[in-house]
């Protein structure tokens, strides 16, 4: 049993989209499906030349935040959304009735309708693919050339992610909502 989370050293991101490609390949996300399981936001530099704010020009990789108190899990009428043994928020497509309440309730717009199963889907930290095969990395982390992503067990004090979170400043998205995301942005 683990409590998986991910740290994102987002300032290292070069927007190569290798993570999106690897995710699609690994998890069978349909080709052409834009910003489905994971995505990278690109912010243009603010200000006017020559006074451009270079720092504002960032890439922000994001995905399901795997909240500790996930609104999507609370609102699901059939328990199709559930926490697995590793505290990963998962969707059982056999139980999903496509009421779309979770899509409305997720503060991070992390859910979408999967045209393969006609149910709601999202990032699963590769739980049903790589982790199920005994691997310890997600596809997006494994392929990232600039090591933006660090995936691991938050309950293991010796894990790389635990050490990173102890030694680097970080923030979470919309933390004021009390959802306790397990995606951490390193600053």
């Amino acid at each position: 049993m683990a409590r998986y989370g991910m740290a994102l050293d987002y300032k290292n991101c070069i927007n190569c989209k290798a993570c999106e490609v690897a995710c699609k390949e690994e998890n069978g996300v349909l080709l052409g499906a834009d910003k489905h399981r994971i995505w990278v936001g690109a912010n243009a530099p603010s200000g006017e030349w020559p006074h451009l704010d270079i720092v504002s020009s960032t890439f922000m990789p994001s995905q399901c935040q795997h909240c500790e108190d996930a609104p999507c899990e609370e609102v699901c009428p059939t328990h199709a959304t559930y926490y697995d043994e590793n505290h990963v928020v998962r969707v059982n497509s056999d139980k999903c009735i496509l009421c779309s309440y979770c899509m409305n309730a997720c503060p991070y717009d992390a859910r979408y309708v999967d045209d393969r199963t006609v149910t709601v889907d999202k990032c699963t930290f590769c739980s049903d693919t790589r982790l199920a095969r005994g691997e310890t990395t997600t596809a997006c982390q494994n392929t990232c050339p600039t090591k933006v992503r660090t995936f691991g067990d938050l309950d293991d004090p010796e894990s790389e992610i635990s050490i990173l979170l102890k030694t680097r400043d970080h923030f979470s998205l919309k933390s004021h909502l009390g959802t306790h995301p397990k995606l951490y942005y390193l600053t």
């Binding site: 059939t78 328990h79 199709a80 139980k95 009735i97 496509l98 309708v113």
Partner: peptide, 26 residues
């Protein structure tokens, strides 16, 4: 509008999400 209404009738009973307002409403 519900994508799977028959599934809804089955899983509303066998796997009720008691924290869901939709479950209580339905």
């Amino acid at each position: 509008e519900i994508g799977h209404p028959v599934r809804m009738m089955i899983y509303n009973v066998v796997s009720p999400g008691l924290t869901s307002a939709i479950w209580w409403m339905g």
